[in-house]
């Protein structure tokens, strides 16, 4: 008979189940990306996922560690990385990104849960630095074009309706607000992600852009800012990454506010139109500090008789 310490029952939650739910939640955005950008997008998704899974497997084999690819977290990383690539990049860029994400950002720091930076975004920023031209060249329907966010920054008119639906140039998975929201609602319903981070992020961002953006409080401008670039994908799928976001309830709100401020700052004042990736990886670095200052008051020790 088995003997163990209490409790003797466990919930049916598991790491692989959570990762599977995230993958399912990313399917609408992935599917729309492939529909929007055609087969090159599908190839990039396949190459990226295969690379991340293989990298984790090979690293763990070489280092004689237990193989953890069955927890599906490498699949999530690969998928997120692909969704953050323009469809026009060659396949080997996805390979370099995938190896960097898993090997450098994740495994060298101790594997799942130990990385201090979102692996997919770390890799994306690495790729932007290495292959700046390729990573910022967007083609749509075979024509080279600027993203709506860049057009907005240049003062041109954009079609916000197309931005919400997603029939615009951009990275593979970031264009369709509807597809991303469908996945986000799914994750919230299954209690995988918490509303605190995305809500604080988006509200802060809107206030910042409303106050300092050149469009001001104009609804059209704000909608375009919200729907443009990687904001929605970032807010719901990258900023909520467990390992690189605070675990304290109040810390989540602080983290969301910092994200909103940084994203607003980058989008309004920097030379680039986009800023979500940098905002998230910089905020990732602040997480240990945020957690230290937001330890919840324990029961029986915090004011109001509580």
């Amino acid at each position: 008979m088995n003997v163990s310490a209490t409790p003797h029952i466990r919930s049916n939650e598991s790491t692989s189940r959570i990762m599977l739910l995230v993958i399912i939640a990313l399917l609408p955005a992935t599917g729309f990306g492939i529909y929007n950008f055609g087969y090159p997008a599908a190839i990039l998704v396949g190459v990226s996922v295969a690379t991340t899974v293989l990298t984790e497997f090979v690293y763990e084999k070489i280092m004689k560690l237990p193989v953890t690819v069955s927890d599906l977290s490498a699949v999530v990383t690969g998928l997120l990385l692909a969704l953050n690539l323009p469809s026009s990049v060659p396949w080997w860029i996805a390979v370099i990104g995938g190896v960097f994400a898993i090997l450098v950002v994740k495994m060298l720091f101790g594997g799942i849960g130990q990385n201090f930076m979102n692996p997919a975004l770390g890799a994306r920023c690495f790729l932007v630095i290495c292959f700046a031209a390729r990573m910022t060249a967007f083609t749509y329907d075979g024509v080279s074009t600027a993203t709506p966010l860049a057009m907005l920054k240049a003062g041109e008119d954009v079609n916000t309706w197309n931005m919400v639906i997603g029939t615009i140039p951009g990275c593979i998975g970031e264009t369709s607000v509807i597809a991303i929201m469908a996945g986000a609602i799914f994750l919230i319903l299954f209690d995988v992600i918490d509303m605190k981070i995305p809500a604080a992020y988006l509200i802060t961002f809107v206030i910042f852009v409303g106050l300092f953006g050149k469009g001001g409080w104009d609804a059209y401008y704000l909608t375009a800012q919200l729907a443009g670039g990687g904001l929605m994908l970032g807010a719901f799928f990258m900023a909520t990454d467990y390992a690189t976001s605070p675990i304290t309830p109040f810390g989540k709100i602080i983290y969301g506010i910092i994200l909103g401020l940084l994203t607003g700052l980058f989008r309004v004042y920097s030379s680039s139109a986009e800023g979500v990736s940098y905002a998230i990886i910089i905020s990732n670095l602040l997480v240990p500090l945020i957690e230290r200052f937001t330890v919840p008051k324990c029961f029986g020790k915090g004011g109001e008789n509580r």
Binding site: T15, I18, T68, I112, G113, Y242, S245, I247, T248, P296
Partner: peptide
């Protein structure tokens, strides 16, 4: 038991 994924469910 596997590595903590810092999901915050325990909190």
């Amino acid at each position: 038991p596997s590595a903590c994924i810092k999901c915050g469910k325990c909190l």
